[in-house]
Each structure stands twice: as structure tokens, then as C-alpha cells.
Design a protein around this nucleic acid. Structure first.
Lengths: 260, 260
DNA sequence: TTTGATCATTGGTCTAGACATGTCTACCAG
DNA sequence: CTGGTAGACATGTCTAGACCAATGATCAAA
């Protein structure tokens, strides 16, 4: 890789870090660089500043900076080569990132019209799963939201969402049947969602689910458990979406990373 | 997690490291512990020795040991919790979806032993789906391979694979029960697989599937339809894998690309 | 011109500490 | 019995160095 890159260092001089912040220094650097890299300013192959140069610029030790670089490397955004340097990863590695979408976006992309019926919206104490995931003090409460999701007015899924009250006080004032919760979080609470993990399995519907979705006896459901994170790996949302097995297919695009 | 574990340290006293070895110390430790953990000696939730204890035992610094622990944590073998300790992770049969993997690679990465029983391997004329996907001349034939996939000798999935004869003539000469088809394609036919799309849905098993997988009545299956491509978007494989619903969870990691 | 040695630069590994922060237990006061 | 707190102990973060190993450019010798 020849990779012209004399000005590589320039783009990163704008990054500022606060050592006194509760956010770890390496996370601040990784976040800032992730944003720069995602913005697409740097073509694949662009050389990043050598570790030692950035250490000096930020006034931090090399091990700390390497934590930031390692984070980005694991995410597939950059590639390190001993003796050569660190480079912006080629597009194909970035592409392997599955794009995260809300139900609204998902249905719309299939050419259907999404809608919702709000079934439940209330504050509840934390379940053991909430405790494990959100890691909050015991007294914190959780917004529990249950919605029936429809595509072209046909029930497709039941959604059960848990979000800490801390994250979005007075969430119940919004019209949760009309608006995407993701957009409410991002636009009204300034919560930037960055990534999520989904656990997909097949299951038998509960009686309630079967009734809500108008399902026949014996038909299975597709259950998607989702854990959504914001900046700094902050846990934001714990959700379970139960889809009618005969009406929904999850689509996943993967790439082969280690070619032989 | 109460997790009795006073003797936790004991199991790791047998690990020996060579500081003069060309293999990094942290890799030696991670390798040794990985083998111990995969052997199944330690039930999920068992406490591992505190970092400082192992440091002293091995005569290394804490940052080095942490590199080993972090490696294992990324692999999903252990879990660290600040203030509590490090524990053996629960063994779930999971599909890490950000990278494309064969069943073999997937099971092995979970520390289980994958195996297969070849049910069918024959040449068949193209189905309408084959015609649409492979876009071959009418006379071309297709290898149809059906395999029962097992993890630690327990049936987990039934796989039905279609690959054009053109791509891999004499594929039937290989031991398809013992070898990963992906590795045969890559090593023996020089076919570089680059990416795939998967369509995941819940369904009811056919009678044959139910019998092969040893399933109870009423249990659903998770069906994954896969379209695999090689270089230049060449269609290579059309496959359907039917997993036992109670034994398999597909995991998808997604990122939010366009904030707002 | 080509080959080969040298050497500065880069990331990879490692050390021996430090302080911060989350967790749990044991004990003590009410 | 309850509630709070002090302390022990765990991982998380960070420092300021060190040496190793791979790379690639430079330069001298064949």
C-alpha cells in the first residue's frame, strides 16, 4: 500500500480531550476519531498519525492511545501494520457493519406503511434483566412501553421496550404511537444511538401475543431481543420484538473477512 | 451471582509460560486458559483468579495479564465485572453475525465440537430458485447436499445446499461429512467467498426435519436462507439451514450509520 | 545496475507502579 | 431488626518508560 498521506496528521489536530472527564481518555479519542472516519473525509488507505505523534499531541501515554486505536481496529475502521503504520480500513471492512434500523425504517424500506398502537406506557421498577443491563441504582425506574406494530394496517409485531427514566424523563408526554422512539431519543433527548446487538430466535407465542397478532394455532413467532447502546457504550434500550412468523423475515448481510 | 469459587485459582496453577518464547506471554496465557475453559472443567459462573493473583503467579505485570483476559473476553469465554471479579461466561450457542462464518467455524468458536452426517449428495437439475439466483444455461446441473449438523453430537440443524457443478466439479469426491464446504471451495477450487445475505424466519418444521432433529411437537424452527457470493458478485451457494428453535439463537451486531 | 547492509521509523509487547471506581461484607448504631 | 458505613478487594484506567520485530528507504559494494 503506497498510500500518500503526508497531511494525514492534520485532520486529527482538532480533537480535544478532557482528562478530568468521567469518560475515559481512550474512549474520548476513539469516539472523536470514529466520527471523523465515519464522515468519510479520509479515503481508505489514508495513513493515520503514528502512535507516538498522537501521544505527544494529546499529552498522554502510548498505552492509552493504543487502547483507542485497538478499539477502532476491532470495529474494522482502521488497520495497523507493524513497521508500516496505521491506515483507514478499506470500504469492504466498514461495509460489514450491519446497518441498524428502527421498525419504522425497516417497514418503509420494504415499501409498506408502518403504524403503531400504543398498548402500555408506564414506569416500572427494574427487572433483574434491567439491573444487569443498565447497571443503575436500585431506586431508578424504567419506562415500559408496549406497542403493536402494523404494516399496511396488518399487525406484524408486538414490541416491548425498556428505557431508563433517567435517559428520557417525561417520555410519556410524546405521542409514542405516531413517532419512532429512536427519533424521539435522538431529537428530543440528544441521545445518539450508536449500535445494538440482536438475538434472534424462534419461539411459540404467548396467548396474548397470539391474540394481538391474530395468529392461527401452531404458528411460531420470530423473537428479536435487542440491546441498544449510545456513546461510550452507554446502555440505552432493552427491547423484545415478537414478529408473526409467517409475515416477517429478518435480513442480514455478512462479509467474509479472513480470505484464505 | 454468588458463584462459589474459593478454589478457582487452583485449576490455573498448572499453566506454565516461557518468557523467552517468540509467542507473546499474553498469547501463551490466553491459549492455555482457552483450552482449560473449552474443556468444560469449569461451570459457567466460576470465578477466575483475580488479576493480581495471576500476575504474581506468573511473575508478569498486570497490563500483560489483562491483555490475555481481554482476548478471552472478546471471544466470549469470560466476563469481567468491575468490583466483582472475572467469571466463566455462560456457554450459549450463538451466531456472531458481523462476520460470515460456516457452521463449522461457528460451533468451533464456541468451544464445541462440530460434526456432520451426510444425508444426500447428488446432481440435480436446476430448480426455479436456482435459475433465478445462479443465472446459468439450462443444461447446467446443481450439486444438492443435505447434511445433519451436530454440536457435541447433539443434532442442531439440517442444511440443504445448492452449488452449481460448474463451480466445483467432482465435489462428491470429498468427504463432505468431515470437511467444511467453505474450506473445500476455498482450498481446492480457489473460490474466494466474499459475502452473503441471510433471510431469517421462524417456521414449523417438516415431519422429516422434526424427526432428524429429535424435536417435540409444536416446537418451531429457525430457518436461515443464505445466498453466498464470491468475487465479482458471482453467485456461489444457495442454502437453507433449519435450526432447532430451542437450541439456537442468531446474533446480529448492527451500527447506526446516519445519526438523526 | 544490482545486491546487500545499515538504520530510522513504525507498531507489538512488556514493566512496575499509580489512582479511580464498583462491589460486597462485616460491623456498628439506632 | 434495620440501615448506614468503613474497609477490603475487585476491575478500570493511566503513566513513562523499555526493548523487540517488521518495514522500507538510503547508501555502499559488487
Amino acid at each position: 500500500m503506497k498510500s500518500a498521506a503526508p497531511p494525514g496528521t492534520q485532520g486529527f489536530t482538532s480533537i480535544r480531550i478532557e482528562k478530568s472527564s468521567p469518560v475515559p481518555v481512550y474512549a474520548q479519542i476513539a469516539d472523536a476519531m470514529r466520527n471523523l472516519l465515519r464522515s468519510g473525509v479520509f479515503p481508505a488507505g489514508t495513513a493515520l498519525p503514528p502512535e507516538r505523534a498522537l501521544c505527544e499531541q494529546f499529552g498522554i501515554s502510548r498505552m492509552t492511545l493504543r487502547q483507542a486505536y485497538e478499539t477502532l481496529e476491532r470495529e474494522g475502521l482502521i488497520e495497523s501494520h507493524r513497521g508500516r503504520g496505521t491506515f483507514v480500513a478499506p470500504q469492504r471492512l466498514q461495509k460489514k457493519q450491519q446497518e441498524m434500523r428502527s421498525f419504522t425504517e425497516e417497514i418503509r424500506s420494504r415499501g409498506l406503511t408502518p403504524s403503531s398502537r400504543l398498548l402500555v406506557c408506564r414506569l416500572v421498577p427494574q427487572s433483574s434483566l434491567d439491573v444487569e443491563f443498565f447497571n443503575l441504582s436500585d431506586t431508578e425506574q424504567i419506562y415500559e412501553i408496549e406497542r403493536l406494530r402494523l404494516a399496511d394496517n396488518v399487525p406484524v409485531a408486538v414490541e416491548l421496550i425498556h428505557i431508563p427514566q433517567q435517559v428520557c424523563p417525561h417520555l410519556d408526554r410524546f405521542d409514542l404511537a405516531a413517532q419512532s422512539i429512536y427519533s424521539i431519543l435522538e431529537e428530543n433527548y440528544g441521545v445518539a444511538l450508536t449500535h445494538c446487538s440482536e438475538y434472534i430466535s424462534a419461539a411459540r407465542p404467548t396467548r396474548e401475543q397470539k391474540q394481538l397478532l391474530g395468529m392461527q394455532s401452531g404458528e411460531p413467532v420470530l423473537t428479536v431481543d435487542r440491546r441498544t447502546f449510545g456513546d461510550n457504550e452507554t446502555p440505552v434500550e432493552l427491547a423484545t420484538t415478537t414478529y408473526r412468523g409467517d409475515m416477517y423475515t429478518a435480513i442480514v448481510h455478512s462479509v467474509r473477512s479472513n480470505s484464505v
